[in-house]
Design a protein around this nucleic acid. Sequence first.
DNA 1: CTCATTTCTTTACCTATGTAAATGGATTTA
DNA 2: TAAATCCATTTACATAGGTAAAGAAATGAG
Lengths: 191, 191
Amino acid sequence: MTEVKDFLDTLTPISDETWAKISVLLKPRLLKKGAFFIEEGQLAKEIGFLYQGIIRGFYRNADGFEYNKHFFTNPSFVGGYASLITNTPNQISQQALSDCQLWVANFEKFSRLYLSCPDLERAARILAERFFVQKEQREIELVVLDADQRYRLFQQQFPQLENQIAQYHIASYLGITPTQLSRIRRKLAQR
Amino acid sequence: MTEVKDFLDTLTPISDETWAKISVLLKPRLLKKGAFFIEEGQLAKEIGFLYQGIIRGFYRNADGFEYNKHFFTNPSFVGGYASLITNTPNQISQQALSDCQLWVANFEKFSRLYLSCPDLERAARILAERFFVQKEQREIELVVLDADQRYRLFQQQFPQLENQIAQYHIASYLGITPTQLSRIRRKLAQR
DNA sequence: CTCATTTCTTTACCTATGTAAATGGATTTA
DNA sequence: TAAATCCATTTACATAGGTAAAGAAATGAG
């Protein structure tokens, strides 16, 4: 479980007492490629820590249209964050794009520790702040950049991912169709 | 200053001791229509609480292109949140769209209170979580909805705002040009 | 009230991207 | 190996939205 402790310590130092309380909540879980960690429409109950593998988080509407919001690569927290926080049903799903290994905890128990562990609540604050900063950045990119700039940015931000996942997942992350991504790739290759 | 206390209490109850420490940091400020609270390129130093007026937060690139990320209406915290958190220069600016009244505090002093006031750090955590949820929602809307659906959503979410600010500010919030917004408005009016 | 400025709308044209369908390569399954 | 499936690419066409410029309407200053 050292993966979790190390990650938390990068946010803020976690005391041994706090870590003792956290660690008893963590259970190992394997997720086979294609399996879901969370699905839309359900109330999220668990928070996960991905220490091996790739997970996509995506929005799916009633027509079956899918938009890949994010690719999670280890190390990273995963889970229906908005659902956990607001206690409303998940709008998004998370699915393994490779075989994955996680530590999983009940979020209700986890977040109850905030009351007795200010250092953990601090870590949670810092994590939420970082999530916000990431989302704000993504928002700007979606509006200000066109699709081929977003594609090149994706290549920089996830350099190892392009060969590991399907093109249509990348297209979906960029907010375009596989057709358009193919056009962009052709144009870029012509130089 | 009760506006600030009341707002914090909606996040989590704030003790009298904590409030005493916060309140000495707060200074009143007037912002005339058109004035900036923060500007891009600078390091943010202050956090503000808007209790009267309208402020736009926007991104501006090197070509002068502007994208209105958000409209702040009272009551609301304002400030270069990402800049404050990450201690990097602001990417965004915030400008008064009407005469505004704020309470302003030095963020460094404010956030140092987290160490001695767990209830304030809790409020900060909850606020960051809410900001994240808002941004995630906005991201989905930008990708999944087309411009006229986003326009109708804007009308619902800011019902009082449409008559108070310029069309081109709304267009910029929607991620389109005033030309396109005008086309959308014409089409909607024809029904 | 009048003139000047700003904002909104309209038009013509152009581009990025979507849709649907066909093709061919790659991978999986029988 | 053969068949079936999945995936990336390509093509033709349709549409949302951008750009530039002009005109109309609203706002503001003197």
